[in-house]
Simulated scan of single mutants.
Amino acid sequence: MKIKVITVGKLKEKYLEKGIAEYTKRLRPFTKCEIIELTDEKTPAAASQAENQQILEKEGKRILNKISNRDFTIALAIEGKQFPSKEFSQLLADTVLKGYSSFVFIIGGSLGLSQEIKERADLLMSFGLLTLPHQMMRLVLMEQIYRAFMIQEGSPYHK
């Protein structure tokens, strides 16, 4: 299985880089993990709704260029389905049994994701109603992916 995390924007905080590197290292025995950082569009301070929509569409096109038709795609969106960790682990296991060998997780930029990306996704997933910085969401996602593998292994990591 291969996991690809597509994100809009660059990490700026060293503590997030270190945390993500740690979980990427921990995942090596289970899966190949790739993080793809895409350029984010600069958003003017007083951007109109039309300007925001154009930004989302530009970022969406960049994301779509990194997705294959064979990828099972999970877009992180506040309106998505929420999963307890054990159900998320089971979702990954079940999806592999259905013949998918590659997962793509998509984290949008500060404006979120375009409608086109949400429609392309096989699943919209939410980590709750709290608003988290998209950069921090990478770390949270990587930890949950690692946790999912630990649950599948029967490890005491997940208590």
Rank of each mutant, 00 (worst) to 15 (best):
T39G: 11
E59Q: 04
D40R: 15
I36R: 10
K58C: 05
E41A: 11
E37S: 14
K42P: 06
C33N: 05
A45Y: 06
A50K: 15
K42Y: 09
L38P: 05
K61T: 04
A46G: 12
E57D: 12
L38C: 08
Q49H: 03
T31C: 14
N52G: 10
T39F: 10
S48Q: 08
I36D: 02
T39C: 07
T31L: 10
T31P: 07
A50M: 09
G60T: 01
A50S: 13
K32D: 13
L56P: 01
T39D: 14
A45P: 09
N52L: 12
D40C: 15
C33V: 15
E37M: 09
A45M: 06
A47I: 05
S48N: 07
T31M: 11
I36N: 04
I35D: 10
E51D: 12
T31G: 06
A46N: 15
Q53W: 01
E57I: 00
T31N: 09
E59F: 05
E34K: 13
D40E: 15
K58M: 06
Q53I: 00
E57H: 02
E59C: 06
E41S: 12
E41Y: 03
T39A: 11
E37N: 12
P44Q: 09
C33A: 10
F30Q: 01
N52W: 00
P44H: 08
A45C: 03
K58W: 00
A50I: 05
T43H: 03
K42V: 11
T31H: 09
E41M: 07
A50L: 12
E37Q: 14
I36V: 12
Q54L: 14
I55W: 03
A47D: 11
E59G: 04
T43Y: 00
Q54Y: 08
T31E: 11
I35M: 09
K32Y: 11
Q54C: 09
I55L: 07
N52I: 02
E34N: 07
T43I: 15
L56I: 01
E51Q: 14
A47T: 05
K42M: 07
Q49L: 09
Q53N: 08
A45H: 07
Q53K: 07
A50G: 04
A47E: 10
K61A: 14
E51G: 03
I55Y: 03
E37K: 15
T39H: 13
E34L: 11
P44D: 10
K61W: 02
L56K: 01
E41L: 03
S48W: 07
L56F: 02
A47M: 12
I35Y: 12
C33Y: 06
A50E: 15
P44V: 05
I55K: 02
A45L: 10
K32C: 06
L38I: 08
F30K: 00
A50T: 04
D40H: 13
I36F: 03
A45N: 06
E59L: 06
T43R: 14
D40K: 15
N52E: 15
Q49G: 01
K32N: 14
I35Q: 12
T31D: 09
A46H: 14
P44T: 05
G60N: 00
D40F: 13
I36K: 11
S48P: 06
